[in-house]
Amino acid sequence: MNYLKTIMPVLFALLFVTQAHARFETHDFATEQMEEDYNVLVQELRCLVCQNQNLADSNAELAQDMRIRVYKMLSEGNSKEEIVDFMVLRYGDFVMYRPPVKSTTYILWFGPLLFFVVAALVVLSYMRKQKIETKAVVDETQQKKAHSLLDD
């Protein structure tokens, strides 16, 4: 119990560590719409360095510079779509956290569904087999016997 008392303040202090790290550069936005667009874009664009993070979450230097580029482009009057197109032209569909549905990404989008269908088919065929086997256990004479027993 005593040692818990000692480490509690440390654990408590740890709560604030991520916050200290997560402080990114700040931007002044001319309009609310621009700020909203900025927030949507940094959520939807992928950090190319730490590939499982979006720009909003990443502290990588390239992600930082890409956020600044997004901000600059918005300030210059580019639309959200224009900025996404700009990034896709350079980094490919991979830069989007939600890749578009097209022939090259069909497996990505429909793969899980395919797995589900295959799994369902396997389970169904297994169940059917089980049923046939249980049916085969009771043959006709046995069934008649059972019926006559029940009738009595």
């Binding site: 360095v49 510079d65 580029r69 032209l89």
Partner: peptide
């Protein structure tokens, strides 16, 4: 120093 050319060229590393 600020990735302006790097981003234009699609550099990621």
């Amino acid at each position: 120093p600020d990735s302006s050319v790097a981003i234009d060229w699609g550099v990621y590393g």
